[in-house]
């Protein structure tokens, strides 16, 4: 579905990605793990057309994405939930969701979108209760649910999730991972970026490990979980206390 070959990304003189190649098959959940500053977010931004200078190849079902604007890429079927719960804080929950379907409004009309939002509300009753509230007043977990739902409103073929558990209490993070598992059942293809490697590897099909702009390891998640390098760097002792919660 998504194929990336030899991707390089630059911020001015800084090279944040140094020849990354990866692919995602339909209905797969692929996770990407790596330390702070490895370039995970940069990779997602590059896919979404937000990095001004990229070299290499990114294609979705054979259509090249390099050089396209973010809104074209959304139209082609890629939706990103960016790092750090990027809600439209002063807008209501309902308005946030409507904007998720911004490009569909012209084609499908208000009624269709309203039905879709009702479906989202069935999945997330907490959002329904708060639909008229400014999104900024939601709790962290609710905000994360909101941005994931908003991204789903564009009916993406591929969903990019950037550290959805970041900054959430472990129990809330678990809920979010449950949501991702449910999405998988409904057949959504997902690229999941996580620092919480244990959680990510336990729900994904395959994984990639990114280090300073390069993929250093890839494989089935079961293999990666057994890999010594991964164990040492990402599942090490320091993380254990947090994970066992």
């Amino acid at each position: 579905m998504l194929t990336i070959r030899n991707l390089e990304a630059y911020y001015g003189a800084i090279q944040a990605l140094k020849g990354v190649s990866l692919h995602i098959l339909p209905e797969e959940i692929v996770c990407l793990i790596g330390a702070n500053g490895a370039g995970k977010s940069t990779l997602l931004h590059a896919i979404s057309g937000l990095v001004p200078l990229v070299k290499g190849e990114i294609s979705l079902d054979g259509v090249s994405l390099v050089g396209r604007s973010p809104e074209e890429i959304v139209a082609l079927g890629i939706s990103q939930v960016a790092e750090g719960r990027q809600i439209f804080a002063p807008l209501t929950v309902l308005e946030n969701l409507e904007l998720g379907a911004y490009q569909r409004f012209r084609k499908e009309g208000r009624r269709q979108i309203a039905q879709e939002i009702e479906r989202i509300f069935e999945l997330f009753p907490a959002l329904k209760e708060r639909k008229a509230q400014p999104a900024g007043t939601l709790s962290g977990g609710e905000q994360q649910m909101l941005v994931i739902s908003r991204a789903l409103m564009s009916k993406p073929k591929l969903l990019l999730l950037d550290e959805p558990s970041m900054g959430l209490a472990p129990i809330v993070a678990k809920e979010i991972f449950q949501i991702i598992r449910d999405l998988r059942k409904s057949g959504t293809t997902i690229l999941l970026v996580e620092q919480n490697a244990q959680m990510a590897l336990s729900l994904a099909d395959r994984g990639y490990v990114l280090e300073t702009g390069k993929i250093i390891l890839e494989g089935e998640t079961a293999e990666l979980l057994q890999n010594r390098e991964v164990k040492r760097a990402y599942l090490g002792k320091g993380r254990k206390g947090f994970l066992e919660e």
Partner: peptide, 16 residues
């Protein structure tokens, strides 16, 4: 209003 609130997020939902 979304652009005013959060510009990068606005372009990620497909707003030009």
């Amino acid at each position: 209003r979304a652009c005013a609130a959060n510009r990068p997020a606005a372009s990620l939902v497909g707003i030009n």
